[in-house]
Amino acid sequence: MSDSEDWSDYEIEQDDKELNSHQLAAKSDSDYDSEEEREAELELAALKSIREGKTIKEITFENDAISALIKEINPESLPWIERCSITSSTPITLQDVTNDIEIELAIYQQALEAAQEGKKMVLKSNHSFTRPDDYFAEMVKTDEDMEKIRSRLLQEHKSIQLSEEAKKQRELKKFGKKVQNEKLRERIDKKRQTLNNIELLKKKRKSSDNADSFNDDFDVAIGEDYTGTATSNNSKSNKKNGKPLPNPKRRAKNDRYGHGGSKRGVKRNTQDSISDVSGINQNKGRSGFGKRGKGPASSKAGKKPRLGKSRRMSSK
């Protein structure tokens, strides 16, 4: 067992070594942002590998010969205006030599310094520096070239503007959606609140119903009719089922013709119905004492008796 563990450790170590030497090549393509970057990195690695493999030979610079040549080429007696060469005051030192922007900026600064210094020197040695406005001559780049450059610049400018506008539009769209969402949420909130209120009112009404039926009149406007006292029995039974009640007309019909439950023998008399005398009008069929008219009128005891026709007509 221990033998095999040792073996695998060794194997892994070897793997690491292998990886290091070819780390770059082994990297998958997706690790690079672009093909160019990959090429550049490969080139750097290649340079490194070459440098490692190279045996640096002893090089002796022929410094004396070089300095002699410099003196020979460069006659000191020549005035500055012949060469117009300016050496920068500070040498270029860069932190990162792979950063293109940094390099260009450094070179630009150097050239700008030379331009400013050169202008002074040229003017000092009594030569004209700037071209007068009425001096026309052939340019390095032709008008056609410059037109191309200009159109490209314009196009670039335009495309930048367009993209910016599109960005703004996108932002607006996003914002608009936000507003819409807020509105929708508001609406939902409102609905929920009103529903809550209704529920609350219903509860209130119910509790007040039990306590005092007098309040009934005020609550008519709120909630549905079928929660009223007339069908309180029905509503109770229906609440058990959890089903909504049918409309009042239907309920009346159901009551009348029967719907649901056993239909047989409902209309028959039972012991109770026979002994129940509450529905019997005792005055029916009898002519009351001191009373005019037909019998049933007496059953409506609380009501005013109907007057005679002549009196009715005269009261109108």
Binding site: R83, C84, T87, S88, A114, R131, A137, E138, M146
Partner: peptide, 14 residues
């Protein structure tokens, strides 16, 4: 762009 044949100022890094 510049004039064709105008003289340049040479700028050398120190």
């Amino acid at each position: 762009n510049c004039l064709k044949g105008s003289r340049p100022i040479l700028s050398f890094d120190s």
